[in-house]
Write a protein that binds this DNA or RNA. Structure first.
Length: 155
DNA sequence: GCCAACGTTGGC
DNA sequence: GCCAACGTTGGC
């Protein structure tokens, strides 16, 4: 029995890793998440789940493409690498603190669905939608099927 | 267990 | 570059 496909939104700074980078490499381990809520969301992911790829901290923040979850959750290797920016000295191999999934490129949108535009649909998306909730900085967040459909209909 | 200080995120 | 909001750390 397979659970129903779920949907997520994942933020990335294009200067560090963009939708074009994902298209080039095909599949990428989503390293570096060091927030428990974001981690918990990745732990809940299943292979085949849909991902909205979002560019943050750039000229026009917004959704730029779609991807799919390509692995089950597994320990983020960078937490054990002393030279990595993401090294976590408190994490152990026996009890890894941080998990990630692999993400595979699906497609690039014809245009960026800008955050500014997304906000205009707040009434339909719901006040709780973490992407547009005031002060929310969550980088991996759940998206309902209805939100997924609405957001992609804006393309 | 409280909370001030600090660091980070991310829009603007 | 600024700064609001948030999460984490560490002294007490």
């Amino acid at each position: 029995m397979t659970a129903r496909r779920r949907y997520w939104l994942m933020k990335s700074e294009p200067d560090a890793f963009s939708i074009d980078d994902l298209q080039r490499v095909g599949t990428e381990p989503w390293t570096g998440v060091r927030n428990y809520q974001a981690r918990n969301n990745m732990r809940a992911m299943q292979v085949g789940d849909g991902v909205l790829f979002y560019h943050s901290s750039c000229d026009v923040p917004g959704i730029v493409g779609t991807a799919t979850v390509a692995s089950v959750p597994y320990p983020d290797p960078t937490q054990f690498e002393a030279k990595s920016d993401y090294f976590d000295p408190k994490s152990t191999h026996a009890e890894p603190r941080w998990q990630l999934v692999d993400v595979s490129f699906e497609r690039k949108l014809a245009r960026t669905i800008a955050l500014e535009e997304i906000r205009q649909h707040a009434d339909k998306l719901g006040e709780e939608f973490a992407l547009i909730r005031r002060g929310s900085r969550l980088s991996v967040l759940p998206v309902s099927a209805a939100q997924w459909k609405l957001l992609l209909s804006l393309e």
